[in-house]
């Protein structure tokens, strides 16, 4: 499988044509939606929460967060960051309920401490491992992201990042950046060793009660 992040930064890769393709492909929608549901169950939120979606794209995951029924602890309110203007354009057309930011999570998370109950990220964190100029390093981008994410979550908050690590080393690089930021971290793999293997980084912020 060719990996788009090997070739281009995400804001260039997800141009208008790619964004539309990504959002309308029913196969991708199905995978994205099942990963979002998996991440949501790992967050185990019991009441309507404020959630940050990192790499929200066209808002496929967000729509799921907005439509969690009250008996299942929703609906949640979300804020999404994405580096691709055309992905956000598609989100706008879809009239998603969350607030959208054109932002690079590798530059940090611009919210005051303790803002979010939880955070979710589907298929985005591997992009942070790309450094696009000589002024920045993958390590620096990961550090700024996880430090910012850690601070922006409330005590007892959780984050679940599903991502596609290129290899074991990248998996280690990502989880150790999270741990250095202060998170309790666990890696969970669904269908390991198969083509459809999914890696979830489950992060917890100590202190406070765990129940959302």
């Amino acid at each position: 499988m060719s990996r788009p992040e090997d070739h281009l930064p995400p804001d260039l890769f997800y141009n208008d044509a790619e964004s539309r393709k990504y959002t309308t492909s029913s196969r991708i929608q199905h995978i994205q939606s099942s990963m979002t549901h998996r991440a949501l169950s790992l967050l185990s939120l019991s009441s309507p929460s404020l959630i940050l979606d990192i790499g929200c794209g066209s808002g496929l995951s967000g729509s799921i967060l907005s439509s969690v029924a009250p008996e299942d602890g929703g609906p949640h309110v979300w804020i999404g960051l994405d580096i691709s203007e055309s992905m956000l354009g598609v989100a706008l057309e879809r009239e998603v309920e969350g607030d959208l930011f054109l932002a690079d999570a590798g530059q940090g998370v611009p919210f005051r401490p303790g803002t979010f109950d939880a955070a979710i990220s589907i298929s985005a964190v591997q992009w942070l491992c790309n450094a696009e100029s000589s002024e920045e390093s993958a390590q620096g981008r990961l550090t700024r992201f996880f430090n910012g994410l850690y601070a922006s979550l409330r005590r007892g908050g959780r984050a679940v990042c599903q991502f596609y690590p290129r290899n074991e080393e990248q998996k280690r690089m990502v989880s150790s950046a999270a741990i250095r930021a202060g998170f309790g971290a666990g890696l969970l793999e669904d269908d390991p060793g198969t083509k459809s293997a999914k890696t979830y980084l489950v992060l917890t912020v100590g202190g406070g009660e765990l129940a959302g």
């Binding site: 956000l88 930011f101 611009p110």
Partner: peptide, 11 residues
């Protein structure tokens, strides 16, 4: 613009 805030910073 159209409700979307641009928080991309020049490096």
């Amino acid at each position: 613009k159209e409700g979307i805030a641009n928080f991309l910073l020049p490096s």
